[in-house]
Design a protein around this nucleic acid. Sequence first.
DNA 1: GTCTGATATCTTGATATCAAGATGTTTGGA
DNA 2: TCCAAACATCTTGATATCAAGATATCAGAC
Lengths: 165, 165
Amino acid sequence: MDTLDRILGEWERERPDLDVSALAVIGRLSRYADLVQARLDAVFAEHGLQSWEFDVLSALRRAGDPYELTPGELDRALLITSGTTTHRVQRLESRGFVTRRRDEDDRRVVRVRLTVTGRAAHEAAHAAHADNETRILAGLSEGERAELLGGLKALGRVLGDTLPD
Amino acid sequence: MDTLDRILGEWERERPDLDVSALAVIGRLSRYADLVQARLDAVFAEHGLQSWEFDVLSALRRAGDPYELTPGELDRALLITSGTTTHRVQRLESRGFVTRRRDEDDRRVVRVRLTVTGRAAHEAAHAAHADNETRILAGLSEGERAELLGGLKALGRVLGDTLPD
DNA sequence: GTCTGATATCTTGATATCAAGATGTTTGGA
DNA sequence: TCCAAACATCTTGATATCAAGATATCAGAC
């Protein structure tokens, strides 16, 4: 018996005609994503970072040397709008974690680059974050974890999350 | 090949020492929760509702006749803070979807009740929403869907989402 | 009966986000 | 060459959210 079982039971009582089987899946998906996020946030906070700050630093770190992306690339990598990217980059710039400069060849473009300080901040948080993720899933059996991963991959497919190649 | 596969590949290139297997699960969980939410939002928008408005109306509808909850009960049902509840209820009250009144026996308590208008708005959106959820999952095979549900239930267990009884 | 602590709700101030549009730059065709 | 359309980024205004604290009410100990 969990939160969704209770909710499904309430619908069963109120609207026995409804098919709530999809809600059983989607309701859990969004609820557990929230609960997991709260656990991740707690570790980021211990390292003085917001979750969104870590996300931007991670995207730059993953890009590889010279740890540089454009705002547009950040928009697409992080699924956020351009205004949000502007705001995020400004905040990280004010903390000394990234630098911004115009591209010389195409002056519409900006290059956002991780600083040494930013890379260090990411590095410290990243280790704790990876541990945290591992710990969250540690209570799953091998089979349960494979089940969850397989189910999520299938969901990604139906949501259209596939890349060329 | 999907978005997470690409991200995992980037980490493999940059930090081959890291164990990214937990990220493969948790990254997909949060990404797909976001993608699903965007699809749900689109249908709510067709019915002139924000996702959070639908959530409040649903909680009240599920409560059963007389479709009434206190702000504190809404906090807990929706995993939001009390300030957010105040704001949500004000907005729904201004749209005529709920009424607020003091409890006579315990004057600290407020009773938020779904109006006939609010119930109708919920009803219309709910039918489309349920269809939408069913449609999103329609691309999954029977087995994939069972896999996803089983994996999510196990995750809920390790996240502590269990109720008494 | 009267405090004191607990409880329920609301207020305040800060901030992350988005949609829509403004600004500046490049590109391709006439 | 010049202009229009495409493009990249930033700005503006609105709003949903939270944390922390304020306010009002109740319950229990004495």
